[in-house]
Design a protein around this nucleic acid. Structure first.
Lengths: 188, 188
DNA sequence: CAAAATTTGTCAATAGATTGACCGTCAATA
DNA sequence: TATTGACGGTCAATCTATTGACAAATTTTG
């Protein structure tokens, strides 16, 4: 039914209006690597699939938190770590957060301002602080994580238990092979 | 060698200084779900693994582009789509980008300013534009994507071909089961 | 013990992305 | 045809995260 919108069949891999972010992967992998010498289509498919899927899943998880008026995902991660350890030095919290030092430090500041985390200078090392989860922070974490995990289940339950284990194992292999590689680029 | 830094064995799941972003997953999955009723540890492990791995991989890929003084990853994605289609309406480019309309529109503006994309009003629909990859844009794309894909291969080559296919299949199953779910939260 | 190197937190500058609102344009329908 | 609703792009406001540089504290090394 679209007349003058039909794409040029020579250049376009497929009708663009029927293409989605997800179906784009297959088309891109078929059409791009043959045109550029040395490009590996399998690696491209793997990374593009991973990126696209992650984008869908974690946007959805974040939106779920927002809709529930809960803390945002980066905050949830800091609270989770602190919930595990109870009390720790901010250097470790920042390191484990996966964010850059500057970003984690700024976020921590904000959460301290919201009185969900208490912070005092460390006596052992005057460069760092000791941080503790406040009662308010503990409550906010449990509330948010309950909502968050319910949605995690929504995603996970499309796979069987065996498939989940397989997926986790494969991702684990991918990461572990590179983790102690000095070549890996990491956040500052 | 750490003396007074030994964590409290009752609250801490493990010595915090030996913990990494990656090993944190196992500890978190073991220690948090038992404390919060209704929390599903398998779903948590799956999502946390996915998130952590993706964060490592795509930070590394972006840093690879930066180090090579190539275009950034979001720009690369727009150029990739345009490279596939040659010429298309910006509405489709924006939709396929996976970003919000506002973000994609602003980014497109910037790339047009850099003369890597040409944009003219569409005659068919005066709300949208027709965008084309310029010669400069094509060159920038091929250069950047060559660097990017070489690094994708670095990640992908830790898996056998069968494992890669399996991983792609599992992620595909995860996403496809939810894609046409009206319940899915999407960007505006 | 002194000097050099590293660690930790923070600042400034920047870049990028989000939501929600708005306006002009197009499509559906009454 | 006129009205209603949907769509496409952009604006403003906000928020988050990044790098690179710096200072203070600590650790390592000579």
């Amino acid at each position: 039914m679209p007349s003058d919108r039909a794409p040029n069949a020579e250049t376009a891999p497929d009708a663009v209006e029927d293409t989605t972010m997800w179906s784009l992967i297959g088309q891109a992998v078929e059409s791009v690597p043959p045109q550029i010498p040395g490009v590996d289509d399998e690696a491209m498919r793997l990374c593009m699939t991973l990126h696209c899927a992650t984008s869908l899943v974690f946007y959805d998880l974040s939106a779920t938190l927002r809709r529930a008026d809960a803390v945002a995902a980066p905050t949830l991660k800091l609270l989770l770590i602190l919930y595990m350890y109870g009390e720790m030095e901010s250097r470790d919290l920042i390191r484990l957060s996966g964010m850059s030092r500057a970003a984690a430090s700024a976020l921590l500041d904000k959460i301290v301002g919201q009185e969900m985390i208490e912070r005092r200078l460390s006596e052992r090392d005057r460069r760092t602080h000791v941080v503790t989860l406040s009662e308010k922070g503990r409550t906010a974490f449990v509330e948010a994580f309950t909502v968050y995990n319910a949605r995690e289940r929504y995603w996970a339950e499309t796979l069987t238990r065996a498939e989940r284990d397989q997926l986790i194992g494969l991702i684990g292999k991918l990461v572990n092979a590179r983790l102690d590689d000095g070549n890996l680029r990491r956040r500052q």
